[in-house]
Design a protein around this nucleic acid. Structure first.
Lengths: 192, 192
DNA sequence: ACCGAATGAGACATCAATGTCTCATTCGTA
DNA sequence: TACGAATGAGACATTGATGTCTCATTCGGT
């Protein structure tokens, strides 16, 4: 017993399995546990050893997604510098979590009737605060509510993740496309 | 037998059932047929009489969604006038189909391995053409691909539909928020 | 008021996914 | 090399959704 904290975590990387699961489930929410296992490249039994059941899997997905999003927000330094640049950093940091976020946004809603997850509320609050700060500092327009900008960000990240997965957008353009559209919109700007 | 074309369609409005199903399934793709039935306000047996099974239901959802999107595109008159105004009309027309579109975008992907639906391709083509036209006429920026703008539109419509359903955005602002963000972005424009 | 069609509720049989188990094999480590 | 842990494959019982049925009731049209 070389490295055992209080569980066992060798050979199969939980995080990697969860990423694969998110990538699959975000596009086929009705996927079987067997399908999830194969998508993760492991056997069904092994998947079951790590996650007691589908509910546990989804819960773990939730936890990981929230945790990684929190980390992404931390790294992005939302309170530093101009708000638009902070958004750009946020989008860049979000890229790695995109499939996970996409899954949570589409499926986590209306989750078993229980009230909106408290972790989500905190996330929304931080992102919304960024947009509000931008508005107060005159960087963002005030006719679009922070709540909507927050939702739009999630939606665009999800759309971007799908577009990349399906090969309709180059992976290297992910961050640029989202940030540019979110910040500048599609219309050709006069300035620039 | 007053009105019988070749089927029977009284009492239960197929379209209305499908709308309710889309609204539910777009947020809980694993919902039971029983849940769908209750969401639509009908009995499980009746739901079954109209749609042979879950597959048939999803297929019907697909058909209706594509059909209504086609109709929306037609009404929007994408080839008429400035491209940005056409986008605005498109978003406005899309509002009624939003939950349906949202469901199709999230679930239709990777559908049973069969190649991307031909109806979807046609839809994408029309929308992409609009964005391309805008670029060629100097209305839209050229560093965002039409394909991405198309995806982004879908994503924003879906996000808007959820935001409205959850009460985070007023229903009357749906069209405005989406169109403004898509066209102008979040950044405060100097002009205006 | 009458009649027929459609519906809702419920009782089933069926089937697929789930969860649990065993066992042979592989892999890391001592 | 030898040992132990973890895995993969498969068998199996269980559960829950599904699909089909019947029957009483409601509703619309005549």
């Amino acid at each position: 017993m070389s490295h055992s904290v209080y569980g066992c975590l060798m050979s199969v990387d939980r995080t990697q399995v969860l990423r694969a699961a998110a990538a699959l489930l975000s596009r086929k929410a009705t996927a079987t546990m067997d399908e999830v296992a194969r998508a993760a490249g492991i056997g069904r039994a092994t998947l079951h050893r790590h996650f007691a059941g589908r509910d546990a899997l989804v819960r773990a997905l939730e936890d990981l997604g929230l945790q990684e999003m929190q980390a992404a927000l931390d790294r992005a330094g939302l309170d530093t510098g101009p708000a638009d640049e902070a958004v750009r950093r946020l989008v860049a940091e979000t890229e790695a979590v995109a499939p996970l976020l996409s899954f949570l946004v589409t499926e986590n809603q209306l989750f078993e009737g229980e009230e909106r997850n408290e972790g989500w509320a905190r996330l929304d609050a931080r992102v919304s605060a960024l947009f509000r700060r931008g508005q107060e500092q005159g960087v963002f327009r005030i006719d679009l509510t922070p709540a909507w900008l927050c939702e739009a960000l999630y939606g665009l990240v999800g759309a971007g993740a799908w577009a990349v997965q399906d090969g309709r957008v180059a992976a290297k353009d992910f961050s640029y496309m989202i940030a540019e559209l979110l910040l500048g919109g599609a219309r050709r700007s006069v300035e620039k």
